[in-house]
Amino acid sequence: MEESRREFFKKVAGGLIAGAAVITVTKKADTQTKVELPTPEDAAKRYKKYLAVDPLIRMQAELKESVKKPEKRWIMVIDLRKCVGCHACTVACMAENKLPPGIVYRPVMDVETGQYPNVSRKFTPKPCFHCENPSCVPVCPVGATWKREDGIVVIDYNKCIGCRYCLIACPYNVRVFDFGYKDYLTGFPASEGLILGQEGLNPFNEKPSLEYNKKWKREGHKSPVSNARKCHFCMHRISAGMLPACTVTCIGRATYFGDKLNPNSLVSELVKKPNVMRLRVELGTNPQCYYLV
């Protein structure tokens, strides 16, 4: 059947209109994806407000302010949603306090829940909780452990007799006993260059720990060998105006540290959130390490 002239013109006109529309849309899309990259100066201006609220910078400033105050109460808040289970805090703590084998102040618990395929992993760092009513303190037969005014539960290594009653009394198992292991390479053949990092370990083993603002060199059976040990919120760092090693090392900014008595502090803000949780509160210990879940 022969096509009429009118129908022919209709088709041509429709084609022209569609083509014009496609060209217009493409042009519009081209203009939308075009991004102007900021200059370094512009970027600094634009992201200033975000940089200002980096928790580490804020906490550092707050800590310096609180250290000077006569009344303060150090607490820790850990955001479990941000913890990726990298164990960097555990390692940082060990390096900071020169911890020998068998001693850990801040293990990260890794619990798998659910059933395949609906499974998930929950990471929970476990420092000392520096409880308001610490069950480890009254049990010490010689008064070698106590809660300081600033909330930190401390151990006097020179007083501790190593009876381990505090280890038994702590419902969170945060206290550990120093069995006197010397270094990480005891028992390995002394073959230089064969064990990665061997050269670096000797200075690590020889350097004294600076816990409680004293130098503790590992020699024979001298304290802290055969003593109870635990996290002390890096007291020596706090007194120097620095945040605890675990806090500054956290790659996900999941650990927060600060003064609970400062109403404007970040930790004070965080503990007021509704998603705050603490471990084994039913025991009445009133732990001062809060988890955000």
Binding site: V104, V108, M109, D110, Y172, R280
Partner: peptide, 9 residues
């Protein structure tokens, strides 16, 4: 006392 301590370290 709390699940996960034994495997934590």
């Amino acid at each position: 006392p709390i699940p996960g301590i034994a495997e934590a370290f």
